[in-house]
Amino acid sequence: MGDRAKLRLARRVSKSTADPGPRTTHPRPAEDLPEFDRTIHERIRLGIISALAINESLSFNDLRRLLKTTDGNLSVHARKLEDAHYVTCSKFFEGRIPRSEYRLTPAGKRALEKYIEQMEDLIRRTRKN
């Protein structure tokens, strides 16, 4: 993802959690709400996707430190994201130490953007009500 795209995404999330200001949109009724993506709704998976959205790549250790989770937990969730083709993992050796490096795929980026849109929509609806 290019720097501009990363900045747009960060700016957008920043705006969504800020003071709502005057309401100008007319949210849709509850029945119209689309189904949410369960793959990234889980906290650790959402954290992995969010971190990778503004970093070109992150190592397994970076993600573990950032998300304050265990090796096993992170490994399971990262695998689920890989299975959904939201992230890719490349494994290589640095000297004799094995390393895993994760990157966000275009599908993962789209999934995060869609998820943020849906969350914003839900919040708008609630504020309206």
Binding site: L9, A10, V13, S14, S16, T17, H41, R43, L46, G47, S50, A51, A53, I54, L66, L67, L112, Y115, I116, Q118, M119, E120, L122, I123, T126
Partner: peptide
């Protein structure tokens, strides 16, 4: 939803 958006921002 609000917590999730905050979490995304904090993680970023």
């Amino acid at each position: 939803a609000l917590e999730d958006l905050r979490y995304i921002r904090d993680t970023m």
